[in-house]
Each structure stands twice: as structure tokens, then as C-alpha cells.
Amino acid sequence: MTTPPSDHAVHLLREMLRIRRFEEKCAELYSAGQIRGFLHLYIGEEAVAVGVMQALTPDDAVVATYREHGHALARGIAANALMAEMFGKQEGCSGGRGGSMHVFDAAARFYGGNAIVAGGLPVAVGLALADALAGRRRVTTCFFGDGAVAEGEFHESMNLAALWKLPVLFLCENNLYAMGTHIERALSQQDLPAKARTYGMPADSVDGMDVLAVEEAAGQAVASVRAGNGPFFLEARTYRFRAHSMFDAELYRDKAEVEAWKTRDPLRLLQDRSLVDAAGFAAIDAGVLLEIADAVACAEAGTWEPIAHLTRDVYTPALEGPRERRAR
């Protein structure tokens, strides 16, 4: 007797697979020289973005880092627009100006794409402050890595958000490394929820390789924030399967460690748990591969912004009339 996999499980699997296949393609395109600059892959960590996004509504805001392709896809930014951005084409979601590290989509309330470690946290606090001031019940989710926890901006933001009881979900993706630095060599206190609690906010930790666990923990965290209890800190314990960036020779960790984590591949864990068989997986994969192929075709067909536009979007274009006399 077998129970068929639930639609929801298939949805989660597909979402994670979209990220996996998108990024595998990005790595290929990087080697081919079509994607340039810094490229940071999220492969291995897909369950975190996908699990958390299930708890958010379209009204909520997301702030992410330079390792944000997964978050962007899971948030609903089209693979076409994202791939065009990777190429630097003007059809990209940031008009091609940002590239891999600076994905933005105002309509999706996706506020980057911040490549200064911990630079997104204060911005998330401010987005939440605006909601609080306007009396809106929205949640701002801020993703950041374990490395960010050492920065002053992390501590200042945690304190502000807790002090002012702002609706922020601080989502720490603890993949054990900040570039080549293991968390044990970076943080005197590695119990991150304990650290967060000292600011007077509730905190939890979840297995970041298990998308169902992430979904559940994020659901509870978001519910707490939305209920007006102030910020929440959630640690997702995860691991990046690939190098930090395309320039990293990975001299700081053992292959065996990477292989051990790969046995807990989030895709495989969900597939096993949700009883998606090989044929079912192949069917999902085929659809995903089509989507990615289409995204690459779109990006290739995309156009370069004319050089005459170089200094565009440094300032917001003026509206009609002198601004001091403009009616509000």
C-alpha cells in the first residue's frame, strides 16, 4: 500500500529543484564566461529559502545577501528575469546593473541582493519600522549568514528591532563557514539562539536541510512576529555544498566533511520522506529543466543597455514642476 506524494510535497521539491538546476546552469555559464563577477552558489541550502518563503505572504518583505538566487526564485521572481540579470542584460530584474549579487524586485518586495556582510539587517529593521509606523501587519524577513553575526551591524540591528518591537524575522543561515573561516574560529558564543535571546527576543534553531522542519519553524516564527510580539530570530543549520565563490579552492575544509553533509541533501531528504519515486522525480525535473533552458534562451536573447544610458538611475528622475511647490 503506498500513499501518493502530497501536492504540497511535490511543490516544495519542485521549488528546491528549480534552485538546484538554475545554479548548476549558472556554474556552467560562469565557466563559459557568460556570467561574470562574483558568483556565490546556494546549492545545498535550498530547503532554507524554500521553507521560509512558504510562511510569507506577497505583502511581506525579503532582504537577502549576495547568495540570493535561491531566495529570489522561491520568492517568485521569474527565472527569466533572474537569468537575464546574471548575464547583465537590461531585461534582468535589476536592469542588468546588479548581476548575481544584487537581485532586486520591488514588486515582489525583494530588497536585495546586499553584498556587504550584515548590510541588509539595518535595512530590514527600517522596512519593519515603516510598517509599524503605518500600522500595517507585515513581516520583513532578513536572511544573512553566520559570518554576519560577528559584525556590529548585526548587534545594533537586533537591539533596535527588539527595543522597538519591530516585525522582523532574522533568519540566520548557519552553514558553518564565512568564506574559509569556520564558526568556531569566528564566534566566542556559537549558540546563536542564546545570543539572540540576550536581546530579549524569542529564538529558535532548525535543521536547515529538512524543508518540512524549516517550513514549520518559519511558520511559527512568522506567526509570532505577525501577532505583534516583536522580532524573532531563527537559525537554520545548513551547509553549502559548493565553494564560497567561483574563486575558492576550498583549502579550509575536508572533502569528507562535504560528503557527509551531502548525505543529507535537502532534495533527497524530502524525496525519501514524501515518497516521490524516481519516475515522479524525473517528471518534475523535466519541467524544471525546460524552465531553466527557457531562462537561458531569454537571457541570451536579451539586449545590452546602450552606453548612452550609463549615468541613468543614479538619482530618481524629477517629477513635473518645482518640487518645493509640488502638492503632497
Binding site: 561574470r36 563577477g37 547583465g88 542588468g96 544584487h102 545590452w304 543597455e305 552606453i307 549615468t311 543614479v314
Partner: peptide, 16 residues
């Protein structure tokens, strides 16, 4: 350099 934050695409970065 042109008065613009450095853009990502090569042709625009070069132009800047």
C-alpha cells in the same frame, strides 16, 4: 570615472 556606482555589465563598467 563617470559619476555612477560601478555597473555590473562589462560594456558599462568599461564605459564608466
Amino acid at each position: 570615472s563617470a559619476e555612477v556606482p560601478i555597473p555590473y555589465p562589462k560594456h558599462l563598467e568599461d564605459a564608466a
